[in-house]
């Protein structure tokens, strides 16, 4: 199918239409400001000195830009008793999120593919049960999961957290991919079967390359979920194996010493940056993939 373009469609013109458009953009601009305002406050606070924060207004632009707070948040802020900044915990999060995202996405794709293109009796029931997994509140599974991790010898470790996120991500990733593959023509898979490819051959060489949009959406979703997770992190890790979200909480919620708003803000931004990055990078790829028009048959 060719990419459908709609930007060539003839639009109404004339003063009335123009006025409407101006109005539209004004409204959109206001929403945009409203949405971006907290980010502005965070960024500007993070580059102010503590003195400036105390004296000036929250909304004022910084007088002098200093990255001291950032350096401290990254390298020397105290998390509990350890004063190495967010850095080690950030690495924990990377070590946890990357494998968990990749694993849950790949397995979700495989599930979706098997559920739609190699249908077996009871496939719909299996899918319904998996969907159920997407709607159970995670608090319910904390205790059984803790016990399972203990039995596996993974309690309090990053690999344990990877397992938890992979397992609980599967419900969503399977849902995404199943819904994508249901729209992919069975004929393509049939053609590949006749062409001599097997289950995995078709998956890796035909189906997976076609599912780029689904992969991107799933990766963005999973990464955001896993990176931002607090509940599993705080429940299943201890001290040194904490993910960055838990560490951030410990930085911000310290009850000792002066409240360093600039460090808190910088730490919060650091903890949030990767999801933003994934969104920008993957999202750009997503848009490119769509406009190349080579995604679906």
């Amino acid at each position: 199918m060719r990419a459908r373009r709609t930007d060539g469609i003839v639009r109404a013109s004339g003063p009335g239409a123009r006025l409407l458009r101006v109005l539209l953009f004004v409204v959109l601009g206001l929403f945009c400001l409203y949405y971006l305002f907290p980010l502005f406050v965070m960024v500007s606070t993070s580059v102010k000195s503590l003195a400036e924060i105390r004296e000036g207004s929250f909304l004022a632009l910084p007088r002098a830009i200093s990255f001291e707070a950032w350096a401290k948040a990254w390298g020397s802020a105290c998390v509990g008793v350890r004063c190495d900044g967010l850095q080690p915990y950030f690495m924990n999060s990377v070590m946890m999120a990357v494998p968990a995202v990749l694993l849950s996405t790949l397995l979700g794709a495989l599930n979706g593919y098997a559920l739609t293109k190699w249908r077996f009796p009871g496939a719909d029931i299996v899918f319904a049960l998996m969907l159920f997994g997407a709607f159970i509140p995670f608090q319910v599974v904390l205790l059984p999961m803790a016990r399972t991790l203990g039995q596996l010898g993974l309690a309090g470790t990053v690999p344990g957290l990877i397992l938890v996120h992979t397992v609980y991500g599967l419900a969503f990733t399977t849902l995404f991919f199943r819904n994508f593959f249901i729209g992919v023509s069975d004929g393509i898979v049939n053609a590949a079967k006749v062409d001599g490819a097997g289950f995995f051959g078709i998956f890796f060489r035909i189906v997976l390359p076609m599912s780029l949009p689904a992969i991107v959406v799933t990766v963005i979703w999973q990464f955001t979920q896993i990176w931002n997770d607090f509940l599993f992190g705080v429940s299943f890790t201890v001290g040194d194996s904490n993910p960055v979200t838990v560490a951030l909480n410990n930085v911000v919620n310290t009850s000792t010493g002066v409240k360093e708003y600039n460090v808190d803000m910088a730490a919060a931004i650091i903890a949030g940056l990767p999801t933003l990055l994934v969104y920008v990078v993957a999202g750009a790829y997503f848009v490119r993939g769509l406009s190349a028009g080579a995604v679906k048959g």
């Binding site: 023509s185 004929g187 393509i188």
Partner: peptide, 15 residues
């Protein structure tokens, strides 16, 4: 040991 031409073409879109 068959080859087939499908009514819907069924070409591989990414190749």
């Amino acid at each position: 040991d068959i080859a087939m031409v499908f009514q819907s073409y069924a070409l591989y879109p990414t190749r």
